[in-house]
Design a binder for these strands. Structure first.
Lengths: 207, 207
DNA sequence: GTCTATAGTATGATAGAC
DNA sequence: GTCTATCATACTATAGAC
């Protein structure tokens, strides 16, 4: 394994655990067993390292999600849950990158939104905007009773629930283990999340 | 206004905007127009200041929420939506603390969970554990088909959607106005949110 | 490519004069 | 209570020897 790989792997694990800003290059190089200066040699800056870590996942996940959404064409009727189920396979396939791939990716995505990493959000959106639009179209087809505006609002509520769930996952898992004697893997939070967001999306509008 | 008050007010605004760790004591004292050393004189440490900021809201919000939940006893049948309506008045009453009180409180709550501020979560839970339990009980009564663990998870998904909605409210309102010609007041986002979270909560579990 | 050494900057906290 | 000055400690980034 090259030094560059060692750095990306260590950075991913630490970013996913503590967030981007809270992880120092010293922690990363120490964990990777490489010299501190090597990060700037191989990546140029911490910011570039962050993008490299995200790119490794986004470049796999987004095309896979696009393919899943495409396959919805085969069905006559599309439900919200079917749309969100499209996230499962692309997410689980991230175990190719690392054993903790799915969990790490979701946590990283959460931090990318919650920390004021404007460059990350811009990167994600410009790079994969078409997939996002595709997703919106399917949700509209699954919920023709909702106006575009209503769908817009609910999508952002969903985004919030998802991001928050991932960023807080460790704390929540610990509480669930302590209070309910329930062992939950980070990547299985999505199993709990999907019924929730599908139900919220399909709910009848305010009365 | 005393120096102590100036510090708490400035800290609240900055914490709500950038998070706890990302806000320095120098930013706070500069914004408050007081000396740097005064934070440690009045509060002892940054950690203690964080708790003071949170305490000001929690000590108002939690008892008010408890009273609202208590009033549910008058009803024979309780729905999820009725339970969540209990949040409206206690939240809006936080304008007594500051004009941005409701929004700030929700943002601070989000940061308190997402940053690894173990001491904050512990503080919240030990101080107001009974209200949380009360809330869970009512939600359980409204949704007897869901297990305690399932309720716990969904409650936190709801917290995420709510926090995110408040955090992004200004941007979302502007987009809604531009794209959908829809005028929404910040305090009416909750009208859009409640059907969503009630629908998510009542959704049947994963299958 | 890899290292040491260090520049340059920011942080939380504190001692001590007033 | 409030101030200045400063300590001790982190951080990112880089220059320069090997």
């Amino acid at each position: 394994m090259t030094t560059k790989d060692k750095i990306v792997n260590a950075a991913e694990a630490l970013f996913a655990e503590h967030g981007f800003e809270q992880t120092s290059l010293r922690q990363i190089t120490s964990e990777a067993g490489v010299n501190l200066a090597s990060v700037n040699y191989h990546f140029g800056s911490k910011k570039a390292l962050i993008q490299a870590v995200m790119a490794r996942y986004l470049s796999r996940f987004m095309p896979a999600l696009a393919r899943q959404l495409q396959s919805l064409e085969n069905y006559q009727q599309v439900t919200s849950r079917a749309v969100f189920d499209c996230f499962r396979q692309p997410l689980m396939a991230l175990t190719d990158v690392s054993r903790q791939g799915p969990a790490n990716f979701l946590r990283l995505l959460g931090f990318a939104y919650s920390e004021i990493q404007g460059h990350l959000r811009k990167y994600t959106m410009t790079e994969f905007g078409t997939v996002i639009e595709q997703l919106l179209q399917w949700l509209h087809r699954a919920n023709p009773q909702l106006s575009d505006a209503e769908l817009f609002w609910r999508l952002h509520f969903i985004l919030g629930a998802t991001v928050f769930a991932q960023v807080s996952s460790q704390a929540l898992i610990e509480i669930a283990a302590a209070d309910f004697d329930e062992q939950v893997d980070p990547e299985h939070i999505i199993d709990k999340l999907i019924p929730f967001i599908a139900g919220g999306l399909d709910s009848s509008a305010a009365g």
